[in-house]
Design a protein around this nucleic acid. Sequence first.
DNA 1: GTCTATAACCAGATAGAC
DNA 2: GTCTATCTGGTTATAGAC
Lengths: 198, 198
Amino acid sequence: MLQAREAAIVTSVNRLLAEKGYDAMTVDAVAADVGIAKASLYKHFASKEALAAAAMAAVLDRALARIGELEARADGPPPVPALEQLKAMARWAMQAQLAGEMPTLPAENSSLRQALVADRGYRDRLLEVSERLGAWIEQAQADGALNPRLPGELVLYTLFARGCDPVLGLLRASGQYDDDTIVELLVSSCFDGLAAGP
Amino acid sequence: MLQAREAAIVTSVNRLLAEKGYDAMTVDAVAADVGIAKASLYKHFASKEALAAAAMAAVLDRALARIGELEARADGPPPVPALEQLKAMARWAMQAQLAGEMPTLPAENSSLRQALVADRGYRDRLLEVSERLGAWIEQAQADGALNPRLPGELVLYTLFARGCDPVLGLLRASGQYDDDTIVELLVSSCFDGLAAGP
DNA sequence: GTCTATAACCAGATAGAC
DNA sequence: GTCTATCTGGTTATAGAC
């Protein structure tokens, strides 16, 4: 029962975090959404930051699960090139954001960021996601599929950032494209660039 | 004197906004930074939102000034292709952000966003920047310099977003690259993409 | 216009009964 | 563990003297 309740809390936090952002999300709103009193929330999580860290860790767990699925798929046949795996993860993150399931990347200055890096559960998962994606990036570089002038670090950070790209929301707000089209346009602009090929 | 004081206020707001973000920026901090009492601030600006709107409008004014410089340069000889003008604006925005002079793009959900679109001064400037950049985008498309599969809207939004790209800060935090290198890497990844050319 | 002082409010966190 | 009620700190905004 306790596990189920905490899962329900994390689910609510995840949605509210994606919807309103960390600062605008109030603990009162979380309690109301879960349907319990605020004081009860604090029996499960020590602080608002702990709530957010749990939700962010859950997001990373879903990312790891998706990575696992893609790795299983890659064993083929046919074998899937590493670049395609990276694109698939970008698509997954963008779709999650459009579906309102992806809390936005915390800014460096944010008070949230300090709390997250201090949270072991979050940090460990972030490290693992980075390592798994890093392996694909190195493979794609070895394949000659990535621009050799760009450091792997930049590619990794860019993938994280594109999962929260505000351009997604702006394009949706324009009302001219459906979600699948938006994702394909963004993936294309991310991997192939804005400029025309030579 | 009044003009000078208000300019000093806007300068402080701009820096604090870039440094801490809208929510974390307190009116007390602005007053302390300017060196006047908080009540005096409210004689100049009606609300915190009005403070932010003035600072954001000032950013757009600087962007318009930069656009004007680039247009003058374009008359050549040699004439400058529109794509190069767009890259120059991306560089300008990224450099401004690294210099701590660029407040971050307000998220759609943000309370700030509503205030900004309700502010005539901000809205008019945003429209003009969009039109001026839009003209370059259309020209670059006509030149065949932009990927024809991408709508102009996406290119415009992407340029706005890249000026506030969190990847800039992440790369700087890695400590491995100087600011000029970071900007060139980001411009390259934005226009030419992560993937290797064909 | 600038100041000191304070009002009004809201959000995170806690006390203590059950 | 859950609740109601409250505390505490901080933030926006204003009053009123000078």
